[in-house]
Write a protein that binds this DNA or RNA. Structure first.
Lengths: 191, 191
DNA sequence: GGGCACATGTAAGCTGTTACATGATTAA
DNA sequence: TTAATCATGTAACAGCTTACATGTGCCC
């Protein structure tokens, strides 16, 4: 009962290195966090299905209660198939923009606050990306993966930078409308 | 059983002008499309609840089968409250990036294709935004709203432009890695 | 010995989409 | 008169999150 994109995320992560379901979730949160997410409620059932289908195998670890999952060779075939299938995109929702769109009912100050919050969120993102980038660039084991990892990371960086620039321009735009040096009213010093 | 953000979208749209549930959906799709969406399955039940609460009123139109909904004054109060509440953000998923992240299993050509598809999608968006911008700037009726509308539109423009730039740089990055003029192997003509 | 991170799993529930049923109105 | 668009509504279902139950291993 697991979705194909969940399978892709799991098989993809396991193709890098074997790990537990718990670690899988941490890895997806930390590394794919800016464009993907999976919760336990999806990961564990998906792992069971994948195991039953022979796409992953469960290696009982040192601790009897935990298992490490590894991708099998048929699992790698499956991965190559899944990564070729387009993933149905569901409409994305951006709550802050919805509120800002109706900013007339919100007032100028609170609209500024929304924009400012967006800006600072983007700035935080950018810092995180810098760390991730350093890690990927220092990693000499996954040289075949790193160009792709850097490409998706770069997407996040472009978006976050654009968000910061937008916040600047949006603040300026609203401020200009708020305290309008109207053309109908000339300032004193025209000489 | 309707969510607060759905109510916000509906009341906000009706605060601009009264319309039918059907038109509401078209308006949300066309105008808020790049950051919000609502389907019939949400709109009609939400309208019923809003009507029962007295936040909107149903004006029976010329056609007996269709109604036009208008926001009431208590509805406008509700709108002012709703627009102040932060909207819980659910994690966003970007299928193309997930696939690209595992591009090693996809190969260079198909990875290029994903990037190219993203670029052309962004380019299409930019064209649409140009139309919307022209409409808003020509609109002389909603002068109180237009700064906010332009601000959210501008967000879409920044994002789409950044996506195009990213696509350029990503293609260059992958191409560079694909046909590497390796430093270990010198080309003949060194003189 | 108490707290925290690691670890697995399930159930309940919420959000939102899709598909369908049904019909009126308009334009070709 | 046929097709498209406008219009309302519902039911089934997919997808996903949250909260809970339960336990282990480690470190201070």
């Amino acid at each position: 009962v697991s979705s194909k994109s969940t399978d892709l995320a799991i098989l993809g992560a396991l193709s890098v290195e074997p790990m537990s379901g718990y670690a899988l979730r941490s890895a997806i949160r930390d590394v794919l966090g800016h464009f993907w997410s999976e919760s336990f409620g999806q990961i564990y059932p998906a792992l069971e299905t994948l195991e039953a289908s022979g796409f992953v195998e469960r290696l009982v670890g040192s601790r009897s209660t935990s298992s490490t999952f590894a991708i099998t060779s048929t699992g790698e075939e499956m991965l190559r198939e899944l990564v070729r299938e387009p993933i149905p995109q569901r409409p994305h929702r951006h709550g802050s923009l919805l509120r800002l769109y109706f900013g007339r009912h919100l007032g100028k100050e609170e609209s500024f606050a929304i924009i400012e919050a967006e800006r600072s969120a983007a700035a935080v993102q950018l810092e995180m990306y810098a760390h991730i980038r350093a890690e990927i660039e220092a990693d000499e084991v996954h040289l075949a993966d790193s160009p792709y990892w850097l490409t998706t990371l770069s997407f996040g960086e472009y978006m976050a930078k654009a968000a910061v620039e937008w916040a600047d321009s949006a603040t300026a735009l609203l401020a200009e409308q708020g305290a309008p040096a109207k053309q109908t009213k000339r300032t004193r010093a025209t000489r």
